[in-house]
Design a binder for these strands. Structure first.
Length: 259
DNA sequence: ATGGTTGCCGAGCAA
């Protein structure tokens, strides 16, 4: 089972680039972030034509997540539990049934800038809620994959210019600690488990020639429960997608599971 | 230090 995460930065703007990547990469399941679309406006027909079932959790103009799957999706839930006042569309879950069932969470973690401030407070509170949900999922002892745009640079080796991010909500010590607290419940960060070295990124800003200079950061991650980690056979970043026509500022990251 | 870019949608905000 091939499972990918891709922050597409607007589903309408990616109506050509996303299908092109799907045809090439042929993932079984993709979690999308920043669809920037309501559920009604999502162009279902494009992806149904490629054999995908679509579940969205959209919002007008901003945020929004979705799961596309060639395999049957069951038990879909929308929204991160823990705050009924939170109206931002950043979390969706579904069970995907291959040779065995895998619970997949698609997430768009708050950016948090500027920090300090209310947006940073929201980020840390959201991460505390995510930790609670992650612990619940671990307790099921099912294979669980939590994939998405974490807006977290886990370590200095995950940035081409770590000094430029010292004061940024993506790299502040409290952000990194909150990420570690989730991982340390018992998750495996898929890419880092297979590639210990520096120089691997999943995002390059549109501004200031970041892609041309390879001034990137690694902020798109897949966290695997022990039962999922035992099934992992590969993990890659499709960096060349950033050089395509009208690209997102993020590229896909994917795993394969023996499931 | 600033400015640099893109997407949403039709003015700024978010990133």
């Amino acid at each position: 089972m091939k499972i990918a995460t891709f922050n597409i930065n607007g589903i309408k703007a990616r109506a050509e680039a996303l299908p092109a990547w799907l045809r090439m990469a042929e993932p079984d399941v993709v979690v999308l972030q920043e669809i920037k679309s309501t559920d009604e406006a999502f162009p279902h027909e494009i992806f149904e034509g490629l054999g995908y079932q679509i579940e969205t959790h959209g919002q007008k103009g901003f945020n929004g997540v979705a799961i596309l799957s060639k395999l049957p999706l069951e038990d879909v839930t929308r929204g991160l539990p823990g705050d009924p006042e939170d109206e931002q569309a950043r979390w969706i879950e579904a069970a995907v049934v291959g040779t065995r069932a895998v619970r997949i969470c698609g997430l768009y973690l708050p950016n948090g800038n500027p920090a300090p401030g209310p947006k940073y407070d929201y980020k840390l509170a959201w991460m505390a809620r995510m930790r609670t949900r992650a612990a619940e999922l671990l307790a099921t002892e099912d294979p669980v994959v939590m994939a998405g745009d974490y807006n977290i640079i886990p370590q200095d080796i995950d940035a081409a210019r770590p000094e430029a991010w010292r004061e940024d909500a993506l790299a502040l010590p409290d952000s990194r600690a909150a990420f570690r607290r989730i991982v340390n419940l018992g998750f495996t960060e898929a890419f880092r488990a297979r590639e210990p070295g520096p120089g691997h990124y999943s995002f390059w800003d549109y501004q200031a020639g970041a892609w041309a200079r390879n001034n990137g950061i690694r902020i798109d991650h897949l966290l695997l429960s022990p039962q999922a980690a035992d099934l992992m056979t590969d993990c890659q970043i499709d960096r060349e997608v950033r050089a395509g026509e009208k690209p997102s500022d993020h590229v896909p990251v994917w795993i394969t599971l023996d499931a």
